[in-house]
Nucleic acid binder design. Structure first.
Lengths: 247, 247
DNA sequence: GACAGTTAAATGTAAGACAAATGAAAAATG
DNA sequence: CATTTTTCATTTGTCTTACATTTAACTGTC
């Protein structure tokens, strides 16, 4: 399967792009294994018949994707990087956020996707949640109840709450794939000004969710998440309507 | 030449990394708008007090993340790229695949996450699936029934089938977030040798899924997806057991 | 044999040059 | 005057060379 990262139209792209692609394919195919050292820049340059700066540009591309790391000195060089979940998180969040902000995806579409994915965790979370997860969620609940909280801090706490829910499913792959959808909603949520009443409603739903997890009741958890989605979308619709009315 | 204002507190990372970070932050924060042109490489070099190759390495990092695009010629330069879903797909798939292959995630964990996320689409897919989605799925069903198909081709068809299911939900954000989990399973599935009997069972479950979507029966769709997950994990467990037995 | 200085190898950075692409201005042509 | 062609300036793509910096290994001295 050839996974050309750029140029759908078979353009004769840059040399550095081509070289980066070849090395990337070698890593993906397993020809280069984790912690293996690549040839030195000078050797790569000779091997690909290009200059050293061109090779360096290719290596920088790979480093930007955390596929390799470089080390200076005598036994230095470029090494195939073990791509960790920690490395991949920020990249995933950045990409998800930019996708939403640059493609004017409607609030409804983004919200629908996010809650649909989050509800995918309820079954596992109800089974596996530990006391620590409940503790985190209840701590955030207390924070969300403080009336002097800014809207931004409220949203940030909301994100922490939901990530604890996701982590409660005890599946690191699931946690990774939900980081993007959950975090990318935060800028959109920040556009909503939360009244005391709407905050109270959200906290009530959050409380119901925690209690459902505490009781290991997946169905109730799912139900309350649906209610939270409905309410969130209603809030956003109200904001839109008010904004359209006022010009 | 050592006029660096930030000496002690900041990481002694590469200049190109620092510069790339600054430009990236400007894009994320909205200081640089989509399709806006960055200063020329020479101007950036002077602005950051570095050489042109260093600036170029920074720009290549950003290009690797599809944050910018470059164009040669008189009115060329580096432009802030509108990050499209098409651009983000390959990156997402590559990262997901490497995360699984490099972190020895168990088959069960990866499979659990993938099916949990896919089931998140059933409700919307049952509501919104069009005739075209059913057509694609049925076409893949016919392909999967051909006995002369290699295991790789069978798995590839499987991926196409499930992506059609996801797309049937009619939510591009959802489709994007599911591309990784679904595609990244393919290498793991390729480790399983499918007997005629196991293929028949899978095709039967796939058929049940399509029929459920055709009838707009979300619950049945969910049920059959669960059955497919159970069967897939059983198949993998059998392979593992056989492999452990034979040494 | 332990320690310190030296050396070699590799990446990081700089500077200058030329090639190639590209759009716009200038010039030639009808 | 309108149109086509030519020229030209700008910008990225690439190469060459050189030097700085970092780091591990080597080597010589005590």
């Amino acid at each position: 399967m050839k996974n050309d990262t750029d140029t759908a139209t078979t353009r004769p792209s840059d040399l550095s792009t081509q070289i980066a692609g070849q090395i990337r394919d070698a890593i993906i195919s397993g020809a280069l294994i984790v912690d293996e050292r690549l040839p030195s820049e000078a050797e790569l340059a000779e091997q690909f018949s290009v200059s050293r700066p061109t090779v360096r540009e290719a290596l920088k591309r790979l480093a930007a994707q955390s596929l390799i790391r470089t080390q200076r000195g005598a036994s230095g060089g470029a090494f195939v990087n073990r791509l960790s979940f920690e490395d991949a998180y920020p990249q995933q969040i950045t990409t998800s956020t930019l996708l939403l902000s640059m493609n004017d995806v409607s609030f409804d579409t983004a919200c629908e996707a996010r809650f649909a994915l989050e509800r995918a965790c309820t079954g596992l979370a109800a089974d596996r949640r530990g006391a620590d997860h409940l503790d985190v969620m209840r701590a955030e609940l207390r924070r969300q109840s403080q009336t002097d909280l800014t809207d931004e801090a409220f949203c940030a706490s909301d994100v922490t709450f939901h990530r604890a829910l996701v982590d409660a499913a005890g599946n690191p792959v699931l946690s990774y794939h939900l980081a993007g959808p959950v975090e990318a909603m935060q800028p959109l949520m920040n556009m909503i000004t939360f009244t005391a009443r709407s905050r109270a409603r959200i906290v009530a739903l959050h409380t119901a969710i925690v209690d459902a997890l505490d009781a290991r009741d997946a169905e109730a958890c799912d139900t309350h998440l649906r209610a939270l989605e409905t309410y969130t979308r209603q809030l956003a619709a109200d904001v839109m309507a008010r904004r359209a009315q006022q010009g």
